[in-house]
Design a protein around this nucleic acid. Structure first.
Lengths: 343, 343
DNA sequence: TTGAAAGCGCTAACAC
DNA sequence: GTGTTAGCGCTTTCAA
């Protein structure tokens, strides 16, 4: 691969000049520029990103921490992140923590600040202390899906009002006439779906409906399947199930099918997020849509700002921790919810 | 962030020595090593990957080109690739070409050789000429899912006998007693599923069954849905549908549902690949499993070898292009196929 | 408008 | 065993 100096020699100028025309820095004569461009073309020169990174003291990539790219929400989000990142010339490195905080820390230790100049974090089950450490070492961190706009996490973030999402789901079910509603709370340990559930419970209370049964489970189709079976076997009179995420909601639909229940005639099911599969399931899943693409965009642009302002570096002191709030979630009615029919 | 020299100063040695203990190169005295390690610990030193890359003349990442990470097969594959890559200390950068060869080329131009020292290519709709170009510039390229082991692509690759996969699918349907079988060929343009279809047709011929109707479509659930509807509306007597990929097969099941057909009683459906969703659909999808994880492992290790031997660099001349063949596909019978019942 | 020179943080000969 | 010395390819003052 040809280097900058080779291009310079070829064009009869110095490396500095070539650099200048390539970055549009400094003033360069029109025909010098022309000659340089020709040399670049002739040699098929491409800048060495690692060298540039070193010289500039910055890196061309962003790290995206996810628990597992195999959870279909993340690819969708990652795609949106990548699109946004490309607009500032960043590549994105996807880091699968696999739900393991140690793996997460290992990633942070290795790439933050040396290969990536910023870190985007989804619900990757990371240790907050580790995130603060990387931040204090000068690499900005942005939390991408903070669930409580009213309770800032102490780290820059993009928040979505997930309480509201739960509320909308509950209200929708109530409005259809459901009174006996079961709930499936995904991602048990992390408590990360608590806000969604709270919103749901509030809606029920506001509607004067009984609180209903809850079952915790894994944030997967299988987890939702198991939770729903348990729920339905002990509470056969349930007419609806609310899940804190689409994946478990999809699992609940499978459970219904296996129990000979028709969705939505015998059982209504609603989720949160509106991942692509929600549209593609049979029946199509009613859900509360979260503005994924918007969140990705906000997160990337916030991160970019923090990078430009060397947030963290210059001991931010009392400066407040920035938070962006994405548009509120919206109910998307599809075919998995309907008026209850008594059983 | 502390640098190597700072660590050296702190430990009272020279940078070279620190480098030596960190890389386990050269001979270092036991207590010198000890002091260095302490200094590393005390300062929280972490090597600067970009600097190291520049000095070593190699990069710590591998690029994985995919058409779109939103197609659920790729996340699964990407995860396997990442796992394999981590064992050699590589990070992976996922490059979504979005089916656009130009985007693909832009990625290759930018990162191949400067940020990534090797490129893994799935069916990303890339221009082979571009791939050869990056190879000739010294960055090895490996095709990950070559479909015809008997017809090498002229680029290093991992091959899977997809003809065989189609054959197994066809044979399974025949064995169940189906005679009127429709076929859905995904990814129309690229012709990338041709081998699968050929195998399927061969199986039908061998079984003395009529060739059946074919419909081409997009390699998505929606594409399969549309193709299946078209197929079933014009050929209501079909008792089975073979799709060249799981996603369209899933779509075919949805079409059946919408047409009031029970799967598998009225219509059997079979796909190829065995993505996670195949296990998670209702009914669970019968499919021909491709050894995804094995392929990822083979691809990464082949790529690693090519990197070590500077394949391409040293004008390989007549040296043969390496190919690894993964284990043959295997039939996985689930609930979407059964004995036909006359309609 | 262009060139000379220093340096980003690290590695790798080679010498001591 | 450990230090010295040169770079890796690029950017960026600062002079000319």
């Amino acid at each position: 691969m040809p280097t900058l100096s080779e291009v310079a020699r070829h064009a009869g100028v110095t490396p500095a000049t070539v650099s200048n025309v390539l970055r549009n820095r400094g003033r360069v004569g029109a025909n010098t520029r022309q000659r340089v461009l020709e040399a670049v073309e002739a040699l098929g020169y491409r800048p060495h990103l690692a060298a540039r990174a070193l010289a500039e003291g910055r890196a061309p990539t962003l790290a995206l921490m996810v628990s597992s790219i195999a959870n279909p929400f993340y690819p969708e989000f990652a795609l949106a992140v990548e699109r946004a990142a490309r607009t500032s010339g960043h590549f994105v490195i996807i880091c699968n923590t696999n739900e393991d905080p140690l793996t997460g820390r290992a990633y942070l230790d290795q790439i933050a600040g040396t290969l990536s100049e910023g870190v985007l974090v989804t619900n990757a089950n990371l240790d907050f202390a580790d995130l603060h450490t990387t931040e204090s070492r000068g690499t900005p961190v942005v939390l991408c899906m903070w669930e409580r706009p009213n309770e800032p996490p102490g780290l820059p973030c993009v928040a979505v009002d997930f309480r509201r999402a739960g509320e909308l789901a509950g209200a929708h079910l109530l409005e259809l006439g459901h009174r006996r509603i079961g709930a499936i709370v995904g991602s048990k340990a992390s408590g990360i779906h608590a806000a969604r559930y709270e919103g749901f419970v509030d809606a029920l209370r506001a509607g004067g409906a009984p609180k209903g049964r809850v079952k915790h489970g894994a944030d997967t189709i299988q987890g939702g399947y198991e939770a729903a079976r348990a729920l339905l076997e002990t509470n056969p009179k349930l007419t609806a199930i609310f899940a804190t995420n689409d994946l478990p909601a999809l699992g609940a639909m499978h459970a219904a099918a296996d129990l000979g229940l028709n969705v939505p005639a015998d059982l209504s099911v609603i989720g949160i997020t509106d991942i692509q599969l929600a549209r593609e399931s049979r029946p199509a899943l009613t859900t509360v849509a979260v503005p994924t693409v918007e969140v990705a965009g906000l997160a990337v642009s916030l991160l970019r700002e923090l990078i430009e302002t060397s947030y963290g570096q210059a001991g931010r002191g009392a400066a407040s921790v920035p938070m962006r709030v994405a548009s509120p979630p919206e109910l998307v009615v599809r075919a998995s919810t309907g008026v209850p029919r008594p059983r």
